[in-house]
């Protein structure tokens, strides 16, 4: 799954996902009928609308191969949140089966494929924003495990790392003052750590933080974890 955000804005993240998975020996299929995971309506409280989209997604990804998502929040939508809104629906078993074969990308690489170290080289001071949908999952640790094994990467911690960046989907436009203040605070902490790149496993957080930084004319370089992995391979001519 490319996620609609990468499909619309972050084509290079989708591309890096394909390149990295292929490097690891996977064959990537991209069902062209895919749209969105249904999360915007789910979070917005319109579960009826969300279920329509989830059903479309499940149909589009029919089969038994793992579904890999380069976004913690879309992955969590599939393996946790969709189950809530389908509790009383007759097709719950199909949603559950789909949830069981859905993986967040970095979790899949580390815990699915068993890759614990990453080759190549990437000279950067990386601030890793552990996005909220990685809470309680193995993805955050997976991302730091992989990145810290890359030659040239220095991971820097920053203040209040456990706090949300303030994006929250429609929250960013229905609570613009609070969302913006949360974003400002996150950016303050990140800038104090002085990274050369801000990395996350969710491009939605990066769209929010990067968007604020750019609007302030103090842009900050943002990347998805998978772009770091791909660039490390490229820099060492492994790709």
């Amino acid at each position: 799954m490319a996620t609609c955000l990468c499909d619309a804005f972050y084509d290079d993240v989708a591309r890096a996902t394909v390149e990295v998975l292929e490097y690891l020996g996977c064959t990537v299929e991209f069902p062209a009928g895919q749209t969105c995971c249904g999360q915007p309506a789910f979070n917005g409280g319109d579960w009826e609308a969300s279920r329509k989209v989830v059903r479309h997604t499940v149909k589009t990804f029919a089969g038994d191969v793992p579904v890999i998502v380069p976004s913690g929040s879309c992955a969590a939508m599939m393996f946790h949140e969709a189950l809530l809104e389908f509790e009383k629906e007759a097709d719950l078993p199909e949603i559950e089966a789909f949830a069981r074969r859905t993986w967040e990308l970095v979790d899949f690489i580390v815990n699915g494929l068993g890759i614990k170290t990453w080759p190549g080289r990437y000279d950067a001071v990386v601030a890793f924003h552990r996005s909220c949908h990685l809470r309680g999952s193995k993805s955050g640790e997976a991302a730091t495990t992989l990145m810290s094994s890359i030659l040239g990467v220095t991971l820097v911690p920053f203040g209040e790392g456990e706090q949300c960046c303030g994006f929250g989907g429609t929250f960013s436009v229905t609570f613009p003052n609070i969302s913006g203040a949360m974003g400002d605070l996150k950016l303050d902490h990140i800038r104090k750590a002085n990274p050369s790149v801000l990395v996350s496993a969710d491009m939605s957080c990066m769209m929010h933080l990067g968007g604020i930084a750019e609007k302030e004319s103090k842009p900050i370089k943002t990347q998805h974890v998978v772009q770091v992995l791909r660039d490390a391979l490229k820099n060492a001519n492994l790709l």
């Binding site: 979070n43 909220c132 809470r135 706090q163 949300c164 989907g169 929250f171």
Partner: peptide, 12 residues
């Protein structure tokens, strides 16, 4: 209930 980015810190 809308006043949340659904960050999950409360549950944690």
């Amino acid at each position: 209930p809308k006043a949340s980015s659904l960050c999950g810190a409360c549950n944690e």
